[in-house]
C-alpha cells in the first residue's frame, strides 16, 4: 500500500508572530519556519504504517517555493521514502492546494492520503475536506486512531462530545488530530541520509492546475491586548461579577 502525506512549511509554533507594520500580512522576516505540527503527525502515522508492514511506500509532498524542500527533507528524515515538491510562488489557498494534491494523487495513485487537519498559520481546516470532494475519495477527518483492515481503514474521529469511528473504503483520505500519535525525533544519521532520498519537482502546469487567487487579505492586525485578570474572593463574588459586570449570565 502506498501512502501519500502532505506537509506544509509554516512558522514554528514557538514563534511569537507579529503583524507587518503596514498590516498587509504576518511578518515572516528572519522567523524560524518548521513543518506544520499536524503534518508531522501525519508523517509519523504513515511511517508507523510502513514499520508495521502495512504500507510499502511513503511519499511526502509539499507545495510552495524552494524553501519547502526543507520540510520535505524533514519528512524524509522521519522515515518517508521519497519527496515531491509542487513549485508555486506566494500564498496558495486551500482550494488550490486541494486541486494540486488531486493532481499528485492521480499521478501517484496512493491507497491512503494522510494530511494534517489544519495548518497552524492559516488555521483554515479545509484542504482535506476539499480534497475528499474533488477526488470522490472517502474521508475520515480529525483522526485520533487509524487502523487498516483489509481494503478498509477504520478511523476514530474526535468529534464534539466524544469519539466516532468510521469505516472507509480505500483509497481514502485521513486528516490528523493532535492525539493521533507523538512524532519521533529525526535522528542525526537519518537527517543526513534524507539527503540521498529522491525528491521530484513538479509545476502546477504538470498537474493541469492553474493557481488562482479567490481571496484577498484586507488587513492583518494583532488581537487587542487583554486586561490583566483578577482573583475573586468567593463564588458569590464571581457570580455577581458575571451577572453585573461581564453580563454573561442573567
Amino acid at each position: 500500500m502506498k501512502v501519500l502525506v502532505a506537509v506544509k512549511r509554516v512558522v514554528d509554533y514557538n514563534v511569537k508572530v507579529r503583524a507587518k507594520a503596514d498590516g498587509s500580512d504576518v511578518d515572516l522576516n528572519n522567523v524560524k519556519m518548521a513543518i506544520n505540527p499536524f503534518c508531522e503527525i501525519a508523517v509519523e502515522e504513515a511511517v508507523r504504517l510502513k514499520e508495521a508492514g502495512t504500507a510499502t511506500e511513503v511519499v511526502a509532498v509539499s507545495i510552495g517555493d524552494k524553501a519547502c524542500q526543507e520540510q520535505i527533507r524533514t519528512a524524509l528524515a522521519l522515515g518517508a521514502d521519497r519527496g515531491i515538491q509542487v513549485e508555486t510562488e506566494g500564498a496558495v489557498e486551500p482550494l488550490v492546494v486541494a486541486k494540486l494534491l488531486k493532481g499528485v494523487i492521480e499521478k501517484e495513485q496512493p491507497q491512503l492520503v494522510i494530511l494534517g487537519k489544519q495548518s497552524i498559520d492559516g488555521d483554515n481546516n479545509q484542504t482535506g475536506q476539499m480534497l475528499g470532494a474533488l477526488t470522490n475519495m472517502a474521508q475520515g477527518t480529525f483522526a485520533s486512531e487509524v487502523a487498516i483492515d483489509g481494503d478498509k481503514v477504520n478511523v476514530t474521529r474526535e468529534v464534539d462530545g466524544g469519539l466516532q469511528t468510521v469505516s472507509l473504503n480505500l483509497p481514502a483520505i485521513v486528516t490528523t488530530d493532535l492525539r493521533l500519535n507523538e512524532p519521533r525525533y529525526a535522528s542525526l544519521p537519518n537527517i543526513m541520509k534524507a539527503k540521498k532520498k529522491p525528491l521530484d519537482v513538479h509545476t502546477p502546469a504538470d498537474l493541469g492546475v492553474e493557481p488562482k487567487a479567490h481571496l484577498t487579505t484586507l488587513k492583518v492586525e494583532p488581537p487587542a491586548e487583554r486586561q490583566a485578570g483578577i482573583m475573586v474572593e468567593s463564588v458569590e463574588q464571581l457570580v455577581d461579577k458575571l451577572k453585573n459586570e461581564a453580563k454573561v449570565i442573567s
Binding site: 526543507e70 527533507r73 529525526a186 542525526l188 537527517i191
Partner: peptide
C-alpha cells in the same frame, strides 16, 4: 547549513 538547521530542530525540541 541546512543539515545543521535540521539538527537544530531536533536538538531544540529534545
Amino acid at each position: 547549513s541546512e543539515d545543521q538547521r535540521m539538527n537544530q530542530d531536533t536538538m531544540e525540541r529534545f
